Simulated assay, not measured.
Amino acid sequence: MSSPCDPKHAPAGDVGAALMMIDSRLKGIYDGATETDPEQRALIDQYTASLGPRGANAVLDGTCTLIFMFMKWLRLAYEDHGKDVIEYVVPNLVATMRMMPRSVRPEAIPTMAGLLIAAGTGLSPNLWRKQYGFWTKDEMTPLEVTAFLLAEHINRLTDDRDFATRMIAQALPEPDED
């Protein structure tokens, strides 16, 4: 029986824009930034505002697609070593989010853990979340943090600062060349 949260029913969204935002954050951290560069934040905010509601929803869907793809890669990697992705990834990410109270409010952590578990079991994180209502403004930063932490986890596992971004970029369809 097919689940209503099956990824085949989920919109992919604007994965490219979501990836650009996560990659920008990764590069900032790897370059030694401890705080978000105000100029970078302003550019991201300006870009996000220019999208309009449809575009913002597409980036939201794209971020959920990234979470799904990252968790799928992690699931396969951990299974290759006889380990469970949920056992090894979710507690670490939850613990990290708990140390980020300015970015991730405590009440958002269970939702983010649920998204990770949904993706780790092969369900669409976005469709899983939507069954509980619409996304809230307070969940936007934690969602971005979740995708960021997954990408950073993958990069650490592979000892390659660009692996997660490159993996997704290579999976994206090439634009038609006319």
Rank of each mutant, 00 (worst) to 15 (best):
160 D>V: 01
141 T>I: 15
41 R>Y: 07
42 A>K: 15
95 A>N: 09
169 A>Q: 15
106 P>V: 05
45 D>A: 13
42 A>M: 06
55 G>N: 01
131 Q>F: 01
152 E>V: 05
99 M>W: 00
49 A>C: 00
78 Y>Q: 09
77 A>Y: 15
11 P>F: 05
99 M>P: 00
138 D>P: 01
8 K>W: 07
25 R>C: 07
84 D>S: 09
146 T>M: 11
121 T>Q: 13
78 Y>C: 06
21 M>D: 01
172 L>A: 10
76 L>A: 12
39 E>H: 12
51 L>A: 03
56 A>E: 07
150 L>S: 08
54 R>A: 08
118 A>H: 04
14 D>N: 15
58 A>Y: 02
154 I>K: 05
14 D>P: 03
66 L>Y: 06
47 Y>F: 14
53 P>T: 04
18 A>T: 03
119 A>G: 08
124 S>V: 04
158 T>C: 07
175 P>Q: 10
85 V>S: 09
146 T>Q: 06
70 F>P: 00
79 E>R: 15
9 H>Y: 15
125 P>D: 08
17 A>C: 04
94 V>Q: 11
129 R>T: 07
172 L>F: 10
141 T>M: 13
55 G>Y: 01
25 R>T: 10
93 L>D: 03
144 E>C: 08
123 L>I: 01
120 G>C: 08
80 D>V: 00
55 G>A: 02
9 H>L: 14
121 T>G: 10
155 N>Y: 04
163 F>M: 05
60 L>P: 00
176 D>K: 13
169 A>T: 14
24 S>H: 02
84 D>P: 03
59 V>D: 02
135 W>N: 09
130 K>S: 12
11 P>K: 12
122 G>L: 08
25 R>P: 00
35 E>Q: 12
97 M>P: 04
108 A>R: 10
159 D>L: 11
140 M>A: 14
155 N>I: 02
32 G>S: 08
156 R>H: 13
98 R>Y: 04
93 L>Q: 05
78 Y>T: 06
64 C>G: 11
79 E>M: 12
12 A>W: 00
55 G>T: 02
39 E>S: 11
9 H>M: 06
73 W>M: 04
61 D>T: 02
31 D>S: 14
66 L>D: 03
140 M>D: 09
129 R>H: 12
82 G>C: 03
95 A>L: 04
178 D>C: 00
139 E>V: 02
14 D>F: 02
37 D>V: 03
41 R>E: 13
146 T>C: 15
44 I>R: 14
151 A>C: 04
3 S>D: 15
71 M>A: 04
118 A>Y: 06
124 S>E: 07
170 Q>P: 00
94 V>I: 10
74 L>G: 06
57 N>F: 08
5 C>H: 12
33 A>T: 02
4 P>K: 05
17 A>W: 01
2 S>W: 08
174 E>K: 14
24 S>K: 02
174 E>V: 12
142 P>Q: 11
76 L>N: 14
39 E>I: 10
152 E>S: 09
147 A>R: 08
174 E>Y: 11
29 I>Q: 13
60 L>N: 13
155 N>W: 02
89 V>A: 09
169 A>H: 11
50 S>W: 01
52 G>F: 07
25 R>S: 11
51 L>M: 03
39 E>F: 11
136 T>S: 13
128 W>H: 10
16 G>T: 13
109 I>N: 03
